[in-house]
């Protein structure tokens, strides 16, 4: 595949020549295929590679995940594993009190569930607020708007590992934050060694990294609202706050719902930045579900793929419920929208 690189850019005939050559060679056998199978067969041919990859790497794992979650032992391949029925689920749910992770057989799982739940609630709320305010501000009559939009969008493209390292460096003992506080007369603090600050840092950093993306979607929604609605409201002497609640928010609802779904789904699966920033620590204070699954399935001394599979199915179920809930809300919103 690498011989004819960057066919996507127009680097001129020199680059295109080998591609044309390759595609030309493929033409003869494909003509033969077309004669043999007809045009319908060609449709299947075009669809095939994509569906094959989906089948092998998405659908197949999706279905055998259920089988995995019902087996035990440390063997990797399914036929070598012993059937334990609902044993893994029973182990995950073996708790004296669900509110106290310490009373559970799988206490790290419940710690991860509790941490993730708090993370989702706080991060999603703050993320929506921050993105919405930013989108409203960017939607104003600003000089150099595309520059300001770029400012907030910039971290979205950074890799989660880079994001994690940037902030790990800022929150170091001799980092920028302590430097700033030192200037104001405070003592330096090792932020990531403090359970609460580390937790807050994971929320703040994930908002910093992704808010630009959601701001963009909300901004597109705001710009689609006809300006004459606001002019009419102003003519009627409507106060700006009322215009916001009565015009902006209802008309922004479709985009807002999309954003809420996306933020929720991503928050439940949070992993990369946090893994680099805190590694789940200190202790287990920033251990979230995906990291629990990763460590149980791959990184722990005693790997337990069955338990990891069961936990991942529970997480998948939560994601499906959240999505359906939002889809349902979106529909009722549309029905009840015309008042």
């Amino acid at each position: 595949m690498r011989t004819h690189n960057s066919g996507k850019s127009s680097l001129g005939a020199l680059v295109m020549a080998p591609i044309h050559f390759l595609m030309g060679i493929l033409d003869a056998p494909l003509r033969w295929l077309q004669r043999a199978t007809g045009i319908g067969g060609m449709a299947a041919f075009f669809l095939m590679p994509n569906m094959l990859i989906f089948g092998i790497f998405v659908l197949l794992p999706f279905f055998i995940n259920f089988a995995y979650s019902m087996t035990g032992g440390t063997a990797l391949f399914l036929p070598d594993r012993t059937f334990v029925g609902a044993g893994q689920y029973a182990r995950l749910f073996d708790c004296r009190s669900y509110l106290d992770p310490g009373s559970c057989a799988e206490d790290t799982f419940w710690t991860a569930v509790k941490n993730t739940a708090w993370f989702v609630v706080l991060q999603v709320t703050l993320m929506i607020l921050v993105s919405l305010v930013t989108a409203l501000i960017l939607n104003r009559d600003l000089a150099a708007r595309s520059f300001w939009r770029a400012v907030f969008f910039f971290p979205v493209l950074l890799s989660p590992v880079v994001v994690g390292l940037i902030w790990k460096w800022i929150l170091q003992r001799q980092g920028l934050l302590n430097f700033g506080l030192y200037g104001l007369g405070f003592d330096p603090h090792v932020w990531l060694n403090d359970r609460n600050w580390a937790f807050a840092a994971t929320i703040g950093v994930s908002i910093w990294a992704h808010m630009g993306f959601y701001t963009l979607i909300l901004l597109a929604g705001l710009q689609a609202i006809p300006k004459d609605l606001y002019e009419a409201a102003e003519m009627d002497g409507t106060r700006p706050a009322r215009a916001f609640w009565r015009i902006t928010l209802p008309l922004l609802m479709p985009n807002l719902l999309v954003v809420v779904v996306l933020v929720l789904i991503r928050a439940v699966q949070i992993f990369d930045e946090v893994y680099v920033l805190t590694g789940g620590g200190p202790g287990t204070s920033t251990l979230y579900l995906t990291q629990y699954i990763y460590e149980t399935g791959f990184a722990a001394q005693l790997r337990n793929p069955g338990l990891a599979a069961a936990a991942s199915i529970l997480m998948g179920a939560v994601l499906v419920v959240l999505t359906l809930l939002q889809l349902g809300l979106g529909r009722s919103e549309k029905k009840g929208g015309r008042k």
Binding site: F57, V58, L60, P61, F62, I64, N65, Y68, L76, F77, L78, Q269, F271, L289, T290, I293, Y294, G297, F298, P305, A308, A309, S312, I313, M315, G316, L319
Partner: peptide, 9 residues
């Protein structure tokens, strides 16, 4: 994150 165990196998 939901299918990583079986995908790995």
């Amino acid at each position: 994150s939901v299918i990583m165990v079986p995908l790995y196998s």
